[in-house]
Simulated assay, not measured.
Amino acid sequence: MILITGANGFLGSRLIERIQGKDINLLDRGVDNKHRHYPFFQCEINSRDDYAQALAGCNAVIHCAARVHIMDDKVENPLELYREANTAGTINLAKQAIAAGVKKFIFISSIKVNGESSQLGIPFTSSDVHASQDDYGLSKSEAEFQLLDLAKGSGMDVVIIRPTLVYGPGVKANFASLMNLVSKGIPLPFGCFKNNKRSLVSVDNLVDLIVTCIDHPNAANEVFLVSDDHDVSTYEMVRHMAKALGKPTWQLPVPVWCYKLAGKVFNKSDVVDRLTGSLQVDISHTKETLGWAPPQSLQEGFKQTAEAFLQSKKNSGKA
């Protein structure tokens, strides 16, 4: 039996599709169960809730639930809220999992544990010193340290997976916004964004790695970075999106310095840094330790995402 947290979310839903037919318990903060064939438990991930019923009979936990990163978070003390859900909540769940006899705890962390950006050509590795730069990344980093410490002598193995930006059918946030912009077929001002590199991961590749870790003996107490193993510049990413959407792509050569100046003026430097900077990961440790490789190419992932995006627009009458 496997317990999946964040069952109604983007990753959790795709994971359930992949392993349907197995014995699964689902846990989510939402009241509605989107996957009615499986037992469902409505709980928050925090330092107080009791997960005994959800954990009963489980030998593995895949912990996808989290308080996610929010741009321009306006709450008074965001770090406290991130820590309550992502650190204290994770450890509360893990301690109860040990008491329930769970043998493997797979924690979906974040590349933000490594930092916000990497030097071009010098990708992050799983052995790098933690260098979180925001509250979300810090809460995930603290959870990783405490989980690995908790696992010592407990009889429960911990697996930590740090995804890069995850995309796929139904993706939201910045990726969806950029795809919507590209779908209009209008000239876009990214022609000078050719000298950065970013690692992305399709949700199907991430799910495949998670499933591999469930039973793989070499996964125990390891940290794995994951990507499509195909880094792209912002310019290249837009070209791949346009091709997948069947749209022309004209990218105007607006100098990067113009963006950086605008970012400072409008207090959006973090957004500009994501467009112009690099964030690369080295997944050689993941591939060598598990004998694993991403089964889906970046081109296939973009095509699948674009098809779902276009179908969604058609269904909503906006196509």
Rank of each mutant, 00 (worst) to 15 (best):
K264H: 11
H216S: 07
G263R: 07
T234S: 15
G263I: 03
H216G: 08
F224M: 09
E236I: 01
M237P: 01
Q251E: 13
K260A: 00
D215S: 15
L261M: 14
A262Y: 11
R239N: 13
A244Q: 05
T212F: 00
V211G: 07
M241W: 03
V256D: 08
V223H: 04
H230V: 03
V211A: 08
P253S: 07
V226N: 07
G246A: 09
A219E: 02
V223Y: 10
G246N: 08
V256G: 01
T249I: 15
T234P: 11
V211R: 04
T212R: 15
L225W: 03
S233T: 11
Q251P: 06
N218A: 15
H240N: 07
Y235F: 15
Q251A: 09
P255N: 08
H240P: 00
A242H: 04
F224D: 02
K247N: 04
M237V: 01
A242C: 08
H240A: 09
K264Q: 12
M237T: 13
L261C: 12
A244C: 05
S227I: 04
V226E: 07
D229G: 00
I214N: 05
Y259Q: 01
S227V: 04
T212H: 11
K247F: 01
Y235A: 12
S227G: 05
L245H: 10
G246S: 05
A242G: 08
D228Q: 11
L261W: 13
F224T: 04
L252R: 01
T249P: 00
V238Y: 02
H240K: 14
V211I: 14
W250A: 10
Y235N: 14
H240T: 09
A262I: 04
T212Y: 00
P253L: 08
N221E: 09
E222D: 02
R239I: 09
Q251L: 14
G263M: 05
L252I: 14
Y259P: 02
V211P: 06
W257Q: 10
A262P: 06
Q251W: 04
W250N: 01
A219F: 06
T234C: 12
E236V: 02
A220R: 14
L261G: 12
V254H: 03
Y259W: 15
L261T: 14
S233D: 10
P253K: 10
T249V: 15
W257E: 05
N218V: 00
P248S: 10
H240R: 14
